[in-house]
């Protein structure tokens, strides 16, 4: 554990809390994509299967459970809890995530896992872990698309996405730190490429986020 990873994890937790708070305070789901959180739930459920097989640390286990429970709670709140449920506009949140996210990532993960470990080293848990790395890298896309459709970004929604992006950026610093200060460290290019791709997806958002903070005005996205 290093300061960058801890800060990243905290940023992630904070972003989830901001979103849950935002849903309860505003009592609506305008500009929020459930599909993004459904993708994250798939990511966590496929990556954290090692909860049953390996114990790393109490911190690690607690955070994994926290991510799964809080993400499920976000989905439940938007899809099933009134009055929020009736404010959720399905037609705006229409990213075809099975065709454009889950299926391609499953194919890519199968190919890279088979190339990496061969038939003899095949492991279903490893395959799902690789799949989750790919899927996480694009899981924010439905949210960014919804944001683009609404144009005007509500304050807490902007903050929630900002802390999501900050979390990914801090993870890159964490890898740089680990590569320099950890003995027996080995690079993992799939993790790096997906991590960088995921962070790049936030760059455009960051630009307008800081611009609106600086001017103190309303946060709107250009067409």
């Amino acid at each position: 554990m290093n300061i960058f990873r801890l800060a990243g994890d905290m940023s992630h937790v904070f972003s989830i809390l901001v979103l849950l708070l935002r849903l309860r305070v505003a009592k609506n789901a305008q500009g929020i994509s459930v599909r993004t959180h459904e993708l994250f739930l798939i990511v966590f459920l496929t990556r954290y299967l090692d909860l049953f097989t390996t114990f790393y640390s109490l911190y690690n286990s607690i955070m994994k459970i926290l991510y799964i429970v809080s993400t499920a709670s976000i989905i439940y709140t938007i899809k099933f809890q009134e009055p929020i449920k009736s404010t959720y506009d399905k037609s705006q949140d229409s990213f075809l995530y099975w065709q454009f996210a889950v299926a391609p990532c499953a194919v890519l993960a199968s190919v890279t896992h088979l190339i990496g470990s061969g038939i003899s080293g095949f492991s279903f848990i490893e395959l799902l872990w690789t799949f989750s790395i790919y899927l996480e890298s694009i899981a924010i896309l439905p949210q960014l698309i919804v944001l683009q459709r609404y144009r005007e970004v509500e304050n807490l929604t902007g903050n929630y996405i900002f802390f999501m992006g900050a979390y990914r950026f801090l993870y890159i610093l964490n890898w740089i730190y680990r590569a320099n200060f950890e003995a027996h460290y080995q690079h993992h290019w799939v993790v790096y490429i997906c991590g960088v791709l995921q962070t790049l997806l936030y760059v455009d958002f960051f630009y307008y986020y800081f611009k609106s903070k600086k001017s103190g005005g309303r946060f709107t996205l250009p067409t």
Binding site: R5, D9, H12, D50, T54, Y56, S57, N60, M63, K64, Y67, E126, W129, Y171, N174, Y185, Q186, H188, V191
Partner: peptide, 10 residues
């Protein structure tokens, strides 16, 4: 072995 390293991350 290589993968183990990244499994302690979230």
């Amino acid at each position: 072995k290589e993968k183990e390293l990244f499994k302690d991350e979230l």
